[in-house]
Measured scan of single mutants.
Amino acid sequence: TRRLSELRVIDLRAELKKRNLDTGGNKSVLMERLKKAVKEEGQD
Results as ranks from 00 to 15, higher is better:
residue 21 L to W: 01
residue 18 K to S: 10
residue 17 K to S: 13
residue 7 L to D: 08
residue 17 K to I: 02
residue 27 K to D: 01
residue 35 K to I: 15
residue 35 K to T: 10
residue 17 K to P: 04
residue 14 A to P: 05
residue 12 L to E: 03
residue 23 T to P: 07
residue 7 L to Y: 07
residue 43 Q to W: 08
residue 31 M to D: 01
residue 24 G to M: 12
residue 42 G to T: 14
residue 7 L to T: 08
residue 3 R to L: 08
residue 9 V to G: 07
residue 26 N to M: 05
residue 22 D to V: 04
residue 16 L to F: 00
residue 30 L to S: 05
residue 10 I to K: 15
residue 38 V to K: 14
residue 26 N to Y: 02
residue 3 R to V: 09
residue 27 K to Y: 13
residue 14 A to T: 03
residue 5 S to Y: 02
residue 28 S to Q: 15
residue 30 L to H: 08
residue 9 V to W: 01
residue 9 V to D: 13
residue 29 V to H: 02
residue 10 I to S: 15
residue 24 G to S: 13
residue 2 R to H: 15
residue 34 L to G: 09
residue 7 L to C: 01
residue 43 Q to K: 11
residue 42 G to A: 14
residue 39 K to P: 13
residue 23 T to K: 01
residue 24 G to R: 15
residue 36 K to W: 06
residue 3 R to N: 14
residue 25 G to R: 01
residue 9 V to F: 05
residue 37 A to P: 02
residue 9 V to K: 03
residue 24 G to D: 11
residue 44 D to A: 15
residue 40 E to G: 12
residue 12 L to C: 03
residue 8 R to K: 10
residue 11 D to A: 03
residue 35 K to D: 13
residue 23 T to Q: 08
residue 44 D to H: 10
residue 26 N to T: 13
residue 9 V to T: 13
residue 42 G to I: 03
residue 25 G to A: 02
residue 39 K to I: 09
residue 33 R to M: 02
residue 2 R to E: 15
residue 2 R to T: 13
residue 20 N to V: 03
residue 10 I to W: 10
residue 24 G to A: 12
residue 16 L to I: 00
residue 22 D to I: 03
residue 37 A to R: 05
residue 30 L to Y: 00
residue 34 L to N: 07
residue 4 L to P: 05
residue 34 L to Q: 08
residue 17 K to V: 11
residue 4 L to K: 04
residue 25 G to P: 00
residue 43 Q to V: 11
residue 22 D to Q: 07
residue 18 K to Y: 04
residue 44 D to E: 15
residue 35 K to L: 08
residue 20 N to P: 03
residue 20 N to A: 07
residue 36 K to E: 14
residue 21 L to K: 09
residue 9 V to S: 10
residue 32 E to I: 03
residue 42 G to P: 10
residue 16 L to V: 03
residue 39 K to D: 15
residue 35 K to H: 12
residue 33 R to V: 04
residue 25 G to C: 03
residue 20 N to Q: 14
residue 11 D to N: 00
residue 17 K to C: 08
residue 2 R to I: 07
residue 19 R to W: 01
residue 4 L to S: 09
residue 22 D to W: 01
residue 2 R to P: 05
residue 27 K to N: 04
residue 40 E to S: 14
residue 16 L to K: 03
residue 24 G to K: 10
residue 33 R to Q: 02
residue 22 D to N: 00
residue 17 K to Q: 12
residue 8 R to C: 10
residue 41 E to Y: 00
residue 11 D to Y: 00
residue 37 A to V: 11
residue 32 E to H: 07
residue 15 E to R: 00
residue 17 K to D: 11
residue 27 K to V: 03
residue 41 E to Q: 09
residue 7 L to N: 08
residue 44 D to S: 13
residue 32 E to L: 05
residue 9 V to Q: 05
residue 33 R to D: 03
residue 27 K to H: 03
residue 28 S to H: 10
residue 22 D to T: 03
residue 18 K to N: 08
residue 6 E to K: 06
residue 42 G to W: 06
residue 17 K to G: 11
residue 8 R to S: 15
residue 14 A to G: 09
residue 4 L to A: 08
residue 37 A to K: 01
residue 32 E to P: 02
residue 10 I to Q: 15
residue 44 D to L: 06
residue 33 R to W: 00
residue 25 G to Q: 01
residue 18 K to L: 09
residue 43 Q to I: 09
residue 30 L to R: 06
residue 30 L to W: 02
residue 24 G to V: 14
residue 32 E to S: 11
residue 31 M to T: 06
residue 13 R to G: 02
residue 40 E to K: 04
